[in-house]
Structures are given as C-alpha cells and as structure tokens.
C-alpha cells in the first residue's frame, strides 16, 4: 500500500539524502530508526506528502503522490495521511475540540462531532474538549495530536519521535496507543525514532545509516 522507490532528496544542490526503498502492505507497522542526520526527517516529510523528493516516486494506495497537482495532493494528504509531529503543533487559539475538528475542515470532510467526542474519550481526554492547549499537560497534548492525526481515518499514520520526551512507562503507553489506533482503522503505521526502547515492539525496522562522507 505504501511504496517508495528510487528516492533521494537534494538540499541546496549540495546535501543529498538517499531515501530507502520501502514497501509495506495494508496494516503493516514499520519503524524507522537512525541517528540524527541520517535522513529520518526527510523521509518522514516525503512520506507525509509535504516534501517532494528530488527524484523517486511515492505511491500510497496506488496513487502516485508527487505526480498530483499541489491542490490535489493537499486534498489527498488531508484524507489519507495522519501525522503526529514531534513538536505537537497544536493551534493555541483553538480549543481541543476545534483543534481536532480543523483536521476534518481542512481536509474537506464533513465535521462529525460525535466521532471527535468518541475519539477523545477513547484517548482519555474526553473531559478536556473545551480546554485550550495551554491548559493541557504534555501527555494530554500528545493525545490531542494523535486524535487530530487519526480523526479522518487515514490510510497512513506517521509519528515522528513520539516517545522522545516520555519516561519508560508512558513511552510504552503511547506506542500501544498508536498501534491500537492504526489497527482500528487498518492504517499503515510508520514511526520514526532514535529511541531504542521502541524497537522491541516492531518486527519491521528500517535502520537508516549516516551517509558516507556526508556531515549532517
């Protein structure tokens, strides 16, 4: 369902990041590991549909993402790809509920308050729907971010360093939660991390190496 082929990305005509060949099936869980500078972020952005690689193709559910026009890709991204960024990037001026609702709005999907309510209670933030991000703990914010990523039932769920700032126990929780959410909607889950604690939960691991001769 997700295929990345022959891809590399060149920044400033000098730094070239070679991206791995990826091939996953529906419902696969994939872990991408590697040190900083190994191209994890680049890979994630390419997979998220927000960074066109200099060369190569990305196919999700048979759609070649970077052959589409930009507005088509915007639309596709909103409906098919959910991303949980390391910096959660909630919108401070909007309540929890609207932060999740905006994912439906931006993707042009009918707003479904019941779906949001169910999701929030499942993620343990049902009481916080009217709160603003500034009033939440880091863990709660992450759950809002997860809710926002999965509310449109994406085919691909991406998470960037979801456990980096968490202790062991919470780290376990979050990985479990992401897996659960992905399984519920049959999404392909791709987690990028340098956190070795996460590795044992995944069979399918792609380890990125630092490019030879390149200094990150």
């Amino acid at each position: 369902m997700l295929v990345l082929k022959n891809a590399h990305h060149t920044y400033d005509a000098r730094t070239t990041v070679k991206l791995p060949e990826l091939h996953t099936d529906k419902g696969d869980h994939l872990l991408i590991t590697g040190l900083s500078g190994s191209g994890k972020s680049t890979l994630l952005h390419v997979l998220a549909g927000v960074l066109r690689p200099t060369r190569g193709t990305l196919t999700i559910n048979g759609t070649d993402l970077y052959k589409m026009s930009e507005s088509q890709r915007d639309r596709f991204r909103g409906r098919n790809i959910g991303v949980i960024y390391q910096q959660l990037h909630l919108i401070d001026t909007l309540s929890v509920e609207v932060n999740i609702r905006i994912a439906q709005y931006m993707a042009g999907i009918p707003e479904d308050l019941n779906r949001i309510r169910d999701l929030c209670s499942e993620l343990g933030i049902g009481e916080k729907m009217r709160s603003y991000p500034g009033q939440l703990s880091q863990g709660q914010k992450q759950r809002v971010s997860i809710a926002r990523a999965v509310v449109n039932e994406p085919a691909l769920l991406l998470a960037d360093e979801p456990t980096s700032s968490l202790d062991d126990l919470r780290s376990e929780d979050v990985v479990g939660l992401l897996k659960k959410m992905a399984e519920k909607t049959g999404a392909t889950l791709v987690i990028s991390t340098h956190d070795s604690r996460v590795k044992r939960h995944f069979d399918n691991v792609v380890d990125l190496e630092l490019p030879v001769g390149e200094v990150a």
Binding site: S71, D74, R75, R77, G78, R79, Y85, T93, A103, M106
Partner: peptide, 15 residues
C-alpha cells in the same frame, strides 16, 4: 507553525 500544520492537514494555499 499553525499555518504549516494546517497545510499538512490538507488545507490548501488559497484557504
């Protein structure tokens, strides 16, 4: 970041 995340969520440039 808000603008970037809105784009990432599928919001078009014109929006």
């Amino acid at each position: 970041y808000d603008l970037a995340i809105m784009r990432s969520l599928g919001g078009s440039r014109s929006k």
